[in-house]
């Protein structure tokens, strides 16, 4: 028995195809990105080694800094909106009729492609024929904003679409975690006279702190690499106002054929993602893990 289940050839046969695929298409490309970042390269001709030039220009590139700022705004927004999703999940975990159905309704936008979502929201935000400004005008707002066409509202407009897309995803995650809490704990607190709000804050939230930490990581790092929706919805515009790191990278590499510089941006994105992962891990693992 033991001998059969530790046959090295079988293990290699089962693991290696996948491992080689990931090595070729994920692990090796990570290092290649850093390496290409050291080159001047138009993607077609020969590469010229230029040392750290790309990385140095990156630090002085105001477009890069502005897009990094936008990416961080989105990340912080997303992390804060988790509070809202958590609150909804806590309410749904109480005695709410139809909570299963509500959760599923909330999830629907998450299943659609970012292209479809972006195309839909472009029309929702349309200043003349969109459903949003029609609603605002009906409610008596004199001159509603132009949303995606206005530098000052474009980020918030994108962010509302992001909330629409992801709310259900996080609510499902929180709800699954909340379901894992043994009912006896809640019952004991109720007998001791705790109110539903106390139960939520003092018992439920601490018990799912591990999952909350995972979602902070997911939303923060996920926002840093946010791309599809913004690329389709605004293309980084108007006039660069909604440029993020990923969209800037894509434009440099595949739009302007600066493959070297684009790679440097991609590598910077990777470093930022790993750094924030480490920092968030450090901040959130302060106390001992909760056991039940």
């Amino acid at each position: 028995m033991k001998k059969v289940m530790s046959n090295k050839w079988v293990i290699a046969l089962y693991i290696l195809p996948s491992l080689l695929l990931l090595a070729g298409l994920v692990y090796i490309p990570i290092f290649l990105t850093g390496y290409y970042g050291l080159m001047r390269w138009d993607g077609i001709g020969d590469m010229t080694f230029i040392g750290l030039d790309n990385y140095i220009s990156l630090l002085q590139d105001s477009t890069f800094r502005f897009s990094a700022r936008n990416s961080f705004f989105l990340a912080i927004f997303s992390a804060f909106s988790l509070v809202l999703y958590l609150a909804i999940s806590l309410v749904l975990s109480g005695r709410i009729k139809g909570s299963e159905l509500l959760r599923k309704i909330y999830l629907v936008p998450m299943l659609l492609s970012s292209v479809a979502i972006a195309q839909l929201w472009i029309r929702i935000y349309d200043p003349n024929n969109g459903v949003l400004n029609s609603l605002l005008t009906t409610l008596g707002v004199e001159s509603p904003p132009a949303w995606l066409a206005d530098r000052s509202t474009v980020l918030i407009a994108i962010f509302i679409a992001v909330i629409w897309q992801y709310a259900g995803f996080y609510i499902i995650i929180y709800s699954a975690a909340l379901k894992g809490i043994p009912y006896s704990l809640i019952e004991a607190a109720q007998i001791d006279g705790a109110t539903p709000i106390q139960i939520a804050y003092k018992i439920k939230v601490p018990l799912i702190s591990g999952v909350i930490k995972t979602t902070i990581l997911l939303s923060f790092v996920g926002s840093l690499k946010y791309f599809d929706l913004i690329y389709v919805m605004t293309g980084g515009g108007p006039n660069g106002a909604s440029e993020v790191i990923a969209s800037y990278m894509y434009k440099e590499a595949f739009g302007r054929n600066n493959f070297g510089y684009g790679s440097a941006i991609g590598f910077a994105l990777l470093v930022l993602a790993l750094l924030t992962t480490l920092i968030i891990n450090r901040i959130t693992t302060s106390k001992e893990e909760v056991q039940y």
Partner: peptide, 23 residues
């Protein structure tokens, strides 16, 4: 090896796009 596979989950696609294109 499980951990190695899981690392793949953290990698932003944009950090590998140019090399993937080249490969």
């Amino acid at each position: 090896i499980l951990l190695l596979f899981m690392i793949g989950y953290m990698i932003p696609i944009h950090s590998t796009l140019v090399p993937l294109f080249q490969i």
